[in-house]
């Protein structure tokens, strides 16, 4: 999936099916398709967990991570990846009081998660174990037509230099 200025929207449909699996204590881990931060740009993907009700410290939380992937521009890009990543779960309500749930994180170039991937997807990701609690999802229209929208907005050091 290509980008419009470094923003990617991941549509997660049949979200109630994932919640049912979690309630039945079945692990829920899904990955987004790979997407590029630009042309040229880094190839990334997202990983989402719905933590089980009996998980230590993070029970019933949605975890959200970013992984680097092998991309077609890798040999022309500076490594490690440096930049700012904003992760959001979008409030799908109409009206002015719409409020996304979001976190902004700075890439840490010393971490393996931001080194150039040597296999299809870097096994190391970076993000939040406790991104949002399932109860918080109910407080706004984060789920509409049984679909959750996760947005990833990437501002790479590359963009800043160019």
């Amino acid at each position: 999936a290509q980008q419009c200025n470094g923003i990617y929207i991941w549509k997660i449909e049949n979200f109630s099916g994932l919640q049912r699996a979690q309630e039945e204590e079945r692990p829920v881990v899904i990955h987004s398709p790979g997407f590029y931060t630009g042309k040229p740009g880094y190839k990334l993907c997202l990983r989402l967990h719905i933590q089980l009700p009996n998980a230590q410290r993070c029970a019933n939380f949605i975890s959200l991570f970013v992984h680097t992937m092998q991309g077609e521009y890798d040999s022309h890009l500076p490594w490690p990846f440096q930049g700012t990543i904003r992760l959001s779960i979008l409030d799908q309500s109409e009206g002015p009081e719409r409020q996304n749930h979001e976190e902004v994180m700075e890439a840490k170039p010393e971490l393996l998660a931001f080194q150039r991937p040597t296999i299809h997807r870097n096994p190391k990701g970076f993000g939040y174990v406790t991104f949002i609690h399932l109860q918080t999802l109910k407080q706004r229209t984060f789920i509409k037509d049984d679909t959750l929208l996760v947005r990833c907005e990437v501002q790479t050091r590359l963009d800043l230099n160019s």
């Binding site: 991570f65 992984h67 976190e103 096994p123 190391k124 990701g125 993000g127 939040y128 174990v129």
Partner: peptide, 12 residues
């Protein structure tokens, strides 16, 4: 307090 991002390993 806002959550702190961490590195997390996952392999299929």
């Amino acid at each position: 307090f806002p959550p702190v991002p961490t590195e997390d390993e996952y392999m299929d």
